[in-house]
Amino acid sequence: MAIWVFAEQIDGAPSAGSLEIISKAASMGAVSVFYIGSGSSEAFAALGAHGATTVHHLDTGDVLPSAPASAALASILHDTDTSLVLFGMGNTDRDVAGRLAARLGQPVVANALDVTLEGSVTSEINGGSLALTTRVTTDGPAIIVTRPKAFAAVDSGGATPEIVNVSMPDSGRSGNATITERHVEASDGPDLEAAPVVISGGRGLGSAEGFAMMDELAGLLSGAVGGTRAVVDAGWVPYSYQVGQTGKTVKPSVYIACGISGAMQHVVGMKGSQTIIAINKDPDAPIFGIADLGVVGDVHKVVPQLIEALKAR
């Protein structure tokens, strides 16, 4: 039985999440990848190195990918005996997973932290305090959406995979949406998901200006800056900064939470950090429940002092 992994091209390469899932899938069996994006020999080589043996490649161009991608993937799956179809939590991943599931009449199990070949899935609820094991009971492929960093990306030195070019299907009325402009928000400094130190700011910073000291602190520690959904919704920082359930998952050596309450949807995105430091003026803030070091104090006092101390070294 085949295992399929969905992979999207981001910035010219397979998304980081897709390489993690391909690595996991390769530990269970032979992996076929359904890849969308312009494609390149480097991108295909990366998929192969992580364990893909076959790559079905579709370039959806300026059409919003979910409808054509799910239509094409559904017809490929129709002709194969597949046990699992794995997706990451990227926005296009979730779009294709949902449409594909409805097309095939199969359920989706989301937020997976682990998965078996038999379609048994582990996930967590209540902010990670309860683990659920869910089993898909229908015949046919189990469609599973996995959380970022649930698995490690492993370059096992696999060969360049066989490439099958998929032609653009006619997705009818569903395909009537076009991408007219693409905007990449420039960010300097290290990549949030890969940085060894993450400095995150919450509503407790008081305003967008509060992020200037986050940037300064990150600069001194060679870290990246993140934030909560509250500050993203307020427009203080772009969505690419968001850590949590609906944002990025980070597992740095050190995570410094500044003016963050520690809502469970934030915590699921950072509780895998090795060392957590929290600064919050409320002694009852839930973030202190998971911090290795909690400072009950004002971010506008503690952070500038910390910056001065680091500069003086």
């Binding site: 048994s120 967590e124 429940g289 400072v295």
Partner: peptide, 24 residues
Amino acid sequence: SSQTITAVDPVAARAAGDVVEDDG
């Protein structure tokens, strides 16, 4: 019905460390 929950288990909580009041 297309999926069932077969087990619910508590997850070991991350232990809280030191909390200090800022005295400057």
